[in-house]
């Protein structure tokens, strides 16, 4: 949760109801972030949404009457009551990254249960997109499951990757089969650091295939690529993605300071834009 208590009303709320987390961002008339909150989604969506909204409002130091418009996004976007509009996470992430990192050519968003690549045109407009198909391989849940299998915290995967040498390749990307493979590797005495690096490379390879779909025939190394979604906090995945795109340096893939709230930020900015269009 973060806040800028000096923000003035009216405020615009973006709510991103994802499979793992529910994110809320409040922006003011100038598009500045007034407050944000990230709470676990859990099984009770309505409760998670309300908690995220209340935490953001509390951080901003205002009551619900300050909200001029609400745009919901994420897979639960249609379940948000009182919304002004529901907008897909593809459009919202693109809008958010255009505000945070203007000039981005391709945005990669890896969330809890899906991954997407978006080719952005002038003004951050989506001109092409691709999503993973029907399974959670290469997503946040995939990494969650693998972390559980290795008995490490998912938050620590990036640090574990940092000291790996990169000598191990995983052959499975199906979450179920990969879990079995990871368990077998641990039983065989493989180094957890190397397993983690192998997992991150597998996720990156799958993600680059999405990038190729939205930028066919383009030199991937020449594209300005940014990453959003909770998995972007994992430095190991970011580094593996940069390498898979042809870079030696992980900083070639830009990550905004709060990658998991990019979708909610985009939703909040769209709420503000809508109010401006129809006062």
């Amino acid at each position: 949760m973060s806040a800028n208590p000096g923000a003035a009303a009216p405020l615009y709320l973006g709510l991103d109801l994802g499979s793992l987390s529910c994110d809320a961002v409040l922006v003011d008339d100038a598009g500045r972030v007034a407050a944000s909150a990230v709470v676990p989604t859990g099984a009770r969506h309505a409760a998670a949404m309300e908690r995220a909204r209340c935490e953001a409002l509390g951080a901003a130091g205002v009551g619900p009457e300050a909200i001029a418009a609400t745009v919901s996004t994420g897979y639960g976007r249609e379940r948000v009551e009182g919304r002004t509009a529901a907008v897909t996470e593809i459009t919202c992430h693109a809008r958010g990254i255009a505000a945070l990192l203007p000039g981005t050519d391709v945005l990669v968003d890896i969330g809890g249960q899906d991954s997407k690549a978006m080719r952005l045109g002038p003004g951050g407009r989506v001109v092409e997109f691709a999503m993973n198909d029907k399974c959670a391989a290469g997503t946040g849940r995939f990494l969650d499951a693998m972390a559980r299998a290795m008995e490490v915290r998912v938050e620590d995967l990036g640090a574990l990757d940092a000291t790996a040498t990169g000598g191990l390749t995983l052959s499975s990307m199906c979450t179920v089969f990969a879990e079995s493979e990871v368990v077998s590797l641990i039983a065989d005495g493989a180094d957890v650091h190397e397993i983690v690096r192998g997992l991150h490379r597998a996720v990156a390879a799958r993600t680059v295939a999405l990038v190729r779909r939205v930028a066919p025939g383009e030199d991937l190394a020449a594209l300005r690529v940014a990453m959003s979604g909770g998995v972007a906090r994992n430095a190991g995945v970011v580094r593996a993605l940069a390498e898979a795109l042809g870079h030696a340096d992980a900083s070639a893939v830009s990550v905004p300071p709060a990658p998991d709230t990019v979708g909610a930020l985009g939703a909040a900015l769209i709420a503000r834009d809508r109010c401006r269009r129809s006062p």
Binding site: A85, T88, I90, C92, V126, F129
Partner: peptide
């Protein structure tokens, strides 16, 4: 549809 200019 949003990409094609349907109102987001």
């Amino acid at each position: 549809v949003e990409m094609l200019g349907g109102e987001p």
